[in-house]
């Protein structure tokens, strides 16, 4: 267990994984994009504007999933105080922030032709904006606070408080009247997206997840080097 968690072993695997993802990424991206933009049918109601879904929905999922994992890892860090966990959460944060913002921006672009407005202060959209603010808070603690142990502690607390926002985002469309439609893909039960549109959606999600993995690994590698550099005198 500890051997696996050993930083130098991890470092070796990170290098391999980055190379592997780089080798398959562009082919998969091309396949996913051609399905999303060419082969998938337009929607019966929204026409071709439904294609915005193929970037909007994966972005929102990644934004939510990243924050959930940051928060849960922060809980673990708060209890067990393992430095490595903090390096991981720090490496996930930029991806999460970017995709949360992308979900907001693409959602706004999708809202204009379909709903007739760029922005609405409904529960789903507002809670998503709050998620972006939590990300910004998490990331800026490291920029503002120089004492790293203190920054670790404060960012953990921000992440744990932000965890409460996650179920609110998820269930906002069921609990309150919102302009945003309810979820099409449910944890249990049938999805209300036709398979010919679900397939490109999942493909795009997979490609973006690979992209996230790539960025995460690069950032994590940077963090490991940063720690080693700081402790160079002790090596």
């Amino acid at each position: 267990m500890f051997k696996l968690l050993n930083l130098s072993n991890l470092f070796f695997w990170i290098e391999k994984l980055i190379k592997f993802i780089n080798s398959i990424f562009f082919i998969l991206l091309l396949v996913a994009l051609s399905f999303a933009l060419i082969f998938s049918p337009p929607d019966y109601l929204q026409g071709d504007s439904v294609r915005i879904m193929y970037v909007h929905v994966p972005s929102a999922w990644i934004g939510l999933a990243s924050f959930s994992s940051i928060a849960i890892l922060s809980l673990a860090h708060f209890i067990f105080k393992i430095k490595n966990i903090k390096l991981i959460t720090k490496s996930i944060a930029p991806i999460g922030l970017m995709f949360t913002c992308l979900a907001l921006v693409t959602g706004s672009i999708w809202g204009q032709p379909t709903w007739g407005t760029w922005w609405a202060w409904d529960a789903r959209i507002t809670s998503m904006l709050i998620l972006a603010l939590f990300y910004i808070g998490f990331i800026t603690t490291y920029k503002l606070i120089n004492d790293e142990n203190k920054a670790d502690k404060i960012s953990s607390i921000i992440a744990i408080i932000g965890l409460i926002n996650i179920p609110i985002i998820k269930y906002s469309v069921d609990w309150w009247n919102t302009l945003h439609q309810p979820a099409s893909i449910k944890l249990t039960g049938e999805s209300s997206i036709h398979p010919s549109m679900l397939m490109p959606l999942l493909l795009m999600f997979f490609v973006l997840i690979l992209y996230c993995a790539l960025i995460f690994l690069m950032k994590y590698k940077t963090e490991i080097i940063r720690i080693k550099k700081k402790n160079l005198k002790r090596l």
Partner: peptide, 17 residues
């Protein structure tokens, strides 16, 4: 003085509809 459209969570190709 303003109308917004609200769509549902169902997505399908026109032929199917």
């Amino acid at each position: 003085d303003r109308i917004l459209a609200k769509h549902d969570e169902n997505y399908m190709p026109p032929e199917l509809k």
